[in-house]
Simulated scan of single mutants.
Amino acid sequence: MTVPPKSLPLILSELRIATTQQHQLLEKRIPFFTADQELYTRLIEAYFGFYRPLENLLCQTAMTISGLDWLIRSKTPSLEADLYALGLDADEIARIPQCAFSLEINCAADVLGVLYVLEGATLGGQSLRNGLYSRLGIDEHRGGRFFAVYGTSTLVMWRGFLACLYEVRDPAERAQSVVAAEATFKAFEHWLERRRVLQ
């Protein structure tokens, strides 16, 4: 049994322990190092088809979480902007398949568990951005806005998310957050497999 590091808040330790293996395995399968514009476009389409319905599912409860600033955390507008920049039109974007979620979002702990995955992906995307840009000839105005969604405020936004996450102290609520995070990783992997973009 892995013992959570004492230096971290319990909720963050529990989330890391529960999801690190899932995260590492999935990250190796996502074609972040592609120089293939068509594959990259399909990847952004798959992300859009995942994020849009998931963010719609989160929205009502997320709006009630003090300090979360939900309205500036949504990634769907950036993904949509990237799709336009990559050459899709409104009809093509409207036809992109959407993931059907079985997640139940009943409280802030559920939302924060899901956002641990989504906000973590945003933070991690910073280390991938420059390589993606140079390989594909894109930038935040030409198909790569999703990977620069918070710009220079990325760390500030991550810390703001952590401040909300650290309010989840009750053991039962912490367990809900962990279940939500694990389910999000699992759903994302299954979705990307269905969209045939994983390596």
Rank of each mutant, 00 (worst) to 15 (best):
D91W: 02
C164I: 10
H190M: 09
R135D: 02
A35K: 11
Y51S: 07
P53C: 10
R142D: 15
G124A: 13
V117S: 07
K6P: 01
D110Q: 00
G87C: 01
D91P: 00
I17L: 13
Q176L: 14
L25R: 12
A100F: 00
D69G: 08
A180M: 12
T184V: 12
D110N: 11
A172V: 15
V149C: 04
C59P: 00
F101Q: 00
R73S: 10
R174A: 06
Y40R: 01
H23K: 09
G137Y: 05
A175Y: 01
L198N: 10
G49Y: 02
A100S: 08
K28F: 05
K6W: 00
P5R: 12
R42V: 03
I30F: 03
V178R: 12
Q98M: 09
L198V: 14
Y84K: 13
D170C: 14
E104Y: 02
R145V: 00
P171I: 05
T19R: 11
I96R: 00
T20G: 04
F147C: 04
Y51K: 06
I30S: 10
R16M: 07
E140H: 14
S127G: 03
Y166P: 01
E92A: 15
G124F: 11
L123F: 14
D170M: 13
G131D: 11
G144I: 10
I65A: 09
E92K: 14
R95A: 12
F48L: 07
S177G: 14
G87L: 08
P4Q: 11
G137F: 11
R129P: 02
I17P: 00
